[in-house]
C-alpha cells in the first residue's frame, strides 16, 4: 500500500525527507558540489520564504495550481464517467477500448506542440495536457473497479426496486470507489509532473517557467525554489486527497 498521511506514520514519513536534506547539506558542506551550482538547503528555504510573500511568485503558484486543478478535475470527471460507461455498455466499451489501447502508451507530451498551436500559450494547452495524462490511470482503475463489483450487491439493489440506471450511480459507483481513488492518486502525481513539465517547455508563467528562467540566468537558488514548491504542493495535495479518501472510504474494510 501507499504511505498514509495524517497518521502516526507521519514521523516515519518525514524522516527520509530530512535525510535527503541532510545529504544535500552534506554535499555542499564537504565541497562535493560548488555552492554556486548547488546552494545549501538553508539558503534555498530562506529564499523560498522570501519569495512566498512576493506577488510575482504567488502569481506563478496560482497559475500552476489552476492548471493542475483544472486538468486533474477534467481527468477525474472524464475518467470516471467513461470508465463506468465502458464497464456497463459493451457498445461503449467496443469504442473506448481500442482508443485507450492506442492512446494510453503514447507520451502525451508529444501532443504538446500541437496543443500550443491549437490552444495558445495560456492555460488551455497546459490544462489539456494535464487532463490527457491523468485521464488514463483514472479511467482504467474505474473500469476495473466497476467490472468487479460484487454481483450480490447489484442483486440486492435490484430486488429493492432500483433500475439498472440507478444502480450505476447508487451501487456501482460507490462500490468502485476504492479503485477509483487509487487511480486518482496516481493521476494526481502525474498531474503535478506534467503541469511542471509543460510550463518548463513553453509558458509565460507558472512554477516550471520560473525554473527555466532562473536556469537561463544561472540563478541556482531561484532554480531550486520552484522545484521545492512543486514537491511541497504535491505533498499537500496528496495529503488532501488522503483526507478525502479516508472520508469517502470510511465504510470500506481496507480503508
Amino acid at each position: 500500500m501507499m504511505s498514509r498521511f495524517f497518521s502516526p506514520n507521519l514521523v516515519l514519513g518525514i524522516a527520509p525527507i530530512l535525510l535527503v536534506i541532510a545529504l544535500w547539506q552534506g554535499l555542499v558542506s564537504f565541497g562535493f558540489a560548488p555552492a554556486v551550482l548547488l546552494p545549501p538547503p538553508g539558503f534555498v528555504f530562506g529564499r523560498l520564504l522570501q519569495q512566498l510573500v512576493t506577488s510575482t511568485f504567488q502569481h506563478e503558484i496560482a497559475a500552476t495550481l489552476i492548471r493542475l486543478f483544472a486538468g486533474f478535475a477534467i481527468a477525474v470527471v472524464l475518467g470516471v464517467s467513461i470508465g463506468i460507461a465502458a464497464a456497463a455498455s459493451p457498445a461503449i466499451n467496443a469504442v473506448v477500448r481500442p482508443i485507450v489501447r492506442v492512446l494510453a502508451p503514447l507520451p502525451k507530451v508529444a501532443l504538446y506542440p500541437a496543443l500550443l498551436l491549437l490552444l495558445g500559450f495560456g492555460h488551455g494547452s497546459k490544462i489539456t495536457l494535464v487532463a490527457a495524462d491523468a485521464l488514463f490511470p483514472i479511467l482504467l482503475s474505474t473500469y476495473y473497479g466497476a467490472s468487479t463489483v460484487e454481483q450480490k450487491l447489484i442483486w440486492s439493489a435490484m430486488a429493492a426496486g432500483s433500475s439498472r440506471y440507478e444502480i450505476l450511480f447508487k451501487v456501482v459507483l460507490p462500490a468502485a470507489m476504492p479503485s477509483i481513488l487509487t487511480g486518482c492518486r496516481i493521476g494526481l502525481v502525474i498531474s503535478c509532473i506534467v503541469v511542471f513539465l509543460a510550463e518548463m517547455i513553453t509558458s509565460t508563467d507558472g512554477l516550471g517557467h520560473a525554473l527555466v528562467t532562473a536556469a537561463r540566468t544561472f540563478q541556482a537558488v531561484d532554480m531550486f525554489v520552484p522545484l521545492i514548491t512543486i514537491s511541497l504542493l504535491g505533498l499537500v495535495l496528496n495529503g488532501l486527497l488522503g483526507v478525502v479518501r479516508s472520508y469517502l472510504l470510511r465504510g470500506f474494510p481496507e480503508a
Binding site: A86, A88, P90, N93, L140, Y144, S147, Q151
Partner: peptide, 20 residues
C-alpha cells in the same frame, strides 16, 4: 488473472453488464 488494467483485459469486458 484480472490485471488492474481493465480496458486492456478482455475478460472484464461486459462483465458489469452481465451483472446488471
Amino acid at each position: 488473472n484480472d490485471a488492474p488494467h481493465g480496458c486492456a483485459n478482455d475478460s472484464l469486458s461486459g462483465r458489469l453488464l452481465a451483472k446488471l
